[in-house]
Write a protein that binds this DNA or RNA. Structure first.
Length: 271
DNA sequence: AAGAGAAACAACCGCTCCGCT
DNA sequence: GAGCGGAGCGGTTGTTTCTCT
């Protein structure tokens, strides 16, 4: 007897998400919190499988995501962490606030791999490539002579340093400082009953960010993180406002049966 | 301006892990 | 301890966008 599929696949939509679907998913999660992905599509009125919803939320819709290319510093971190952890993308991502495993994996495959190869470093082992596998220009470099401060040697040394320093990156105090105590692993799941509507400590009277009005439980939303939210083309407040205040959509969202709200639902708070 | 190929990125698939009964 | 189901992870694929000819 085979395993039951994660969801009833018949009639489910696949492929790129539409703005309307995004809207429904965000609306649902903001109102009900993050729980039981299997049930989410049904309750949110989406023709998607729970897995797909989870992926979309984690990789694209989460408000704490940074968008755009990885900075040079982040890239270096990824290389160092990859040398230490291998292809454990989620572990690597947990050290880079606002970045997802998928994003890092894609960036690794499309940018960093090539960069390292170009430098004569094997992206798998982080060791110098054998001479016959070096790119042409690198082979020529080697023949010309050994420059004391080539890109690859500095990169290798950085990796070596990282290896020495990060005996256990999970416990690395430096990482703690770098991340300002933030680790995506620590972002709690929001249970519906946990959604608290007390004003955040950094709330401001300006309408620059509606997120400042939320206080997500057990999660210290740094003011600067909130202010730097780049969401839906950088206009988080208007997007969220649109989402929450869209009457037609609000009425379509099904609250989870049996949930007793400690306080008024978010939508009522916002309106 | 148009077509081809390359690059980038979003999303899917299948497997593993882990908690619950 | 075994079995089951949900969540998460990593590899892979598909689609879109960009660049070059």
């Amino acid at each position: 007897m085979g395993r039951q599929p994660c969801c009833e696949k018949v009639g489910l939509k696949k492929g790129p998400w539409t703005a309307e679907e995004d809207k429904r998913l965000i609306n649902f999660i903001l109102i009900n919190g993050q729980c039981c992905w299997r049930a989410v599509p049904k309750l949110a009125g989406l023709l998607r499988c729970g897995k797909s919803c989870r992926l979309r939320w984690i990789n694209y819709l989460r408000p704490d995501l940074k968008r755009g290319l990885l900075s040079e510093y982040e890239e270096k971190m990824v290389i160092d962490l990859h040398a230490q952890l291998g292809n454990r993308w989620s572990k690597i991502a947990s050290h880079l606030p606002g970045r997802t495993d998928n994003e890092i994996k894609n960036h690794w495959n499309t940018h960093i791999k090539k960069k390292l190869k170009k430098m004569g470093i094997d992206p798998l082992t982080h060791k110098p490539l054998p001479a016959d596998q070096l790119p042409k220009e690198k082979q020529e470099d080697q023949q010309v002579g050994q420059s004391s401060e080539t890109e690859s040697s500095s990169m290798e040394s950085s990796i070596t340093e990282a290896n020495e320093e990060l005996i256990n990156p999970d416990e690395d105090p430096l990482m703690e400082v770098i991340n300002n105590g933030f680790c995506t692993d620590e972002v709690p799941l929001i249970e519906p009953h946990e959604i608290s509507l007390v004003s955040a400590s950094c709330s401001s009277s300006s309408s620059s960010s509606i997120m400042q009005e939320f206080d997500f439980p057990n999660f210290d939303w740094q003011c600067d993180i909130i202010n730097s939210l780049d969401f839906w083309d950088g206009d988080f407040s208007s997007s969220l406002d649109l989402l929450i205040n869209d009457d037609s959509d609000r009425n379509n969202v099904t609250p989870i049966p049996g949930i007793v709200w400690d306080q008024e639902p978010i939508r009522d708070y916002i309106i």
